[in-house]
């Protein structure tokens, strides 16, 4: 992968917190432009610590570790020597708890704040704000005070305030914590839309069903290191490796593995493969025409 395709480059990064706990124990990683990356791993495996290095919220604590960003205009920036606000235009970050980053009295002001700071044109900004509100399903709530939104809605507002910056990379720490299924899907769909515009999305998640469905790459962490890294199909097929990190693949994938059916990640995959076997086994009722669209 050459530098034009790479957006984040991480070499030999370690991070030790004040109390002496080593949260990252040597991470090498390259994230490509246009990837949809999911970082998975048990509580305390270093996922959030790693993600906070992407935009300089944390810097490596070992002298040899480097985090470099390759910006759209062809520059290479080392996060160690660069001030946060210069990195924020390239990598946006959404915290696990949205209430840590919402501070305005209306949703509109919340969304306008970041782009204004980096000199956005007011007319373009007004249009982008309403487009982004619609993208996350908050249209019509522009003048609402965020304290009147539900936790799920505040999470989407926090995500919107990052997406509206038009950053190359959006990093979202646990976008679906405490969300119901419909809200979780709405959030992932808005990230998928952002990704379809050619941007890079990085999420941290425990929801393996959504990871399997949306991510193009999965990075599993364990004890401050990358345990395994690949496509969702590659990573979720390594069941023994995953057991070390307490991750369970989505139920559909676990079931299919138990049944000896390869290549299943989602419910759709499982229905298709199991249907095929049952049709062969029983020579029972033939599948309906346009079988996959029945449900």
């Amino acid at each position: 992968m050459n530098h034009l395709d790479t957006v984040i480059e991480i070499d030999g990064v370690e991070h030790t917190y004040g109390g002496g706990a080593k949260a990252l124990a040597g991470v090498d990683l390259t994230i490509g432009r246009g990837e949809f990356v999911a970082i998975i791993g048990r509580n305390g495996s270093g996922k959030t610590t790693l993600a906070k290095h992407f935009n300089g919220l944390l810097r490596p604590t070992n002298p040899g570790g480097t985090v470099r960003l390759h910006t759209r205009d062809g520059r290479t920036v080392d996060t160690r020597g660069t001030r946060l606000h210069h990195l924020a235009a390239t990598v946006g970050y959404v915290f696990q708890n949205p209430d840590r980053q919402i501070f305005h009295d209306t949703c509109r002001e919340e969304l306008e704040y970041g782009p204004r700071n980096i000199g956005a044109d007011p007319e373009t900004l007004a249009r982008e704000v309403s487009e982004t509100m619609e993208l996350v399903g908050l249209e019509g709530r522009e003048d609402t005070n965020p304290i009147h939104l539900s936790r799920g809605e505040r999470q989407r507002l926090a995500i919107a305030s990052t997406l509206v910056m038009g950053c190359d990379v959006a990093v979202i720490d646990e976008p679906t914590t405490g969300q119901d299924r419909a809200e979780s899907r709405k959030i992932l769909d808005s990230l998928a839309h952002h990704h379809a515009l050619g941007r890079t999305v990085v999420i941290i998640s425990h929801d393996m069903a959504l990871v399997a469905e949306y991510a193009t790459r999965v990075i599993a962490m364990r004890k401050g290191r990358v345990l395994t890294d690949g496509t969702p199909a590659e990573v979720f097929s390594q069941r023994e490796v995953l057991q070390e990190t307490n991750i369970r693949p989505p139920q559909a994938a676990v079931l299919a593995a138990e049944l000896g059916l390869p290549g299943v990640l989602t419910v759709d995959d499982a229905v298709r493969e199991m249907s095929a076997v049952l049709t062969r086994t029983h020579s029972g009722p033939a599948p309906l025409p346009h079988d996959d669209k029945v449900c």
């Binding site: 119901d180 139920q251 559909a252 079931l255 249907s275 049952l278 309906l288």
Partner: peptide
């Protein structure tokens, strides 16, 4: 509001008579 994936899979296979 949501179902376990295995139940979803079984219900969809049942709809197909499977």
């Amino acid at each position: 509001p949501d179902r376990p994936q295995v139940l979803d899979i079984a219900l969809r296979l049942r709809e197909r008579g499977h």
